[in-house]
């Protein structure tokens, strides 16, 4: 696959451009958080409940105890990105490992690993996450690893399916005939061909991870020392009748972040798999 052709296909989709630009905005906000708001964003810096666009010093207003919402949004963007990316990477690593071994070897190994995967699939993810955080404490590391450990099952099943279809193709048989070890066949022959759908799924896991973290912080179960959008929504909800912006601003942030990640994911699918895109669109 040629890079420029891929890029051209990717950029031909308006939703991809939209999604990418929102993500670029969020990344920019995260990068400049410490420049614009060097202080701890959880500091109370002004009067409580200043509405957005009223006080230039606090463009997005302040919350119930006078914390600057813009500062919390920008620092929260870092949390969102960090959690989304790291959790997705963790999930992808676990999922690819289990899926690859399972799909490549089949038989008893496959059977065992898939039962193990199902074990995770049948536990409601959020409940499992809450249990993890309750046991190991609401620290950001626990939250990230927890989200990663509940999000890998889809990846495992997808990679397994890819491996099962790819492992009997001629190029794999040829590699086998050439005397390659299993590990080399998995890593250098099959995996690169199985990756495109995995990359798409990984991008969707980013979106799901952001939502999980938001749900946890909404429930007050995330790291209390860190600003995050979900936490802001959770803390703002008690004032929803009067100062609804406290919950609405970060809520909008979460929505845009997850939406853009999904748009990018869709565009990646089309770009990585042009035939599928053409067939689907009927051209």
């Amino acid at each position: 696959m040629k890079g420029s052709a891929f890029l051209a296909r990717y950029l031909s989709s308006p939703s991809a451009i939209l999604g990418t630009s929102v993500i670029v905005m969020i990344v920019t906000a995260a990068l400049f958080a410490s420049v614009l708001y060097p202080q701890d964003p959880l500091r109370s810096v002004a009067a409580p409940e200043i509405w957005p666009f009223v006080d230039a010093a606090h463009p997005l207003g302040t919350d119930a105890i006078g914390r600057d919402i813009a500062a919390m949004m920008m620092h929260g963007a870092r949390t969102t990105i960090a959690i989304g990316l790291i959790a997705s990477i963790v999930a992808s690593i676990i999922g690819i490992l289990i899926g690859a071994v399972s799909g490549f070897y089949g038989g008893m190994v496959d059977n065992l690993l898939m039962r193990f995967t199902e074990l995770f699939q049948i536990i409601p993810n959020l409940v499992f996450l809450i249990a993890l955080v309750s046991v190991f404490g609401p620290r950001i590391e626990v939250v990230v690893l927890g989200i990663g450990s509940v999000s890998w099952t889809g990846m495992a099943r997808l990679v397994r399916a890819e491996f099962m279809t790819l492992k009997n193709r001629e190029f794999v048989l040829a590699a086998r005939a050439a005397g390659m070890t299993d590990l080399r066949i998995i890593a250098s022959e099959i995996l690169p061909n199985a990756l495109p759908p995995a990359v798409v799924l990984a991008s969707l896991i980013v979106g799901a991870a952001v939502l999980y973290e938001a749900s946890l912080s909404f429930l007050g179960l995330s790291d209390p020392a860190i600003a995050s959008w979900g936490r802001l929504v959770g803390e703002g909800r008690s004032l929803i009748r009067t100062s609804w912006y406290i919950a609405a601003v970060p809520g909008l942030g979460i929505m845009l972040a997850v939406l853009s990640v999904n748009l990018v994911g869709d565009a990646l699918t089309d770009a990585l798999n042009p035939r599928l895109g053409r067939e689907a669109s009927g051209s």
Binding site: L42, I65, R67, E235, S238
Partner: peptide, 13 residues
């Protein structure tokens, strides 16, 4: 209480 968690943030500062 919600006031407990808010107080904790202010006290920590």
């Amino acid at each position: 209480f919600e006031t407990q968690s808010q107080s904790a943030d202010l006290i920590a500062q």
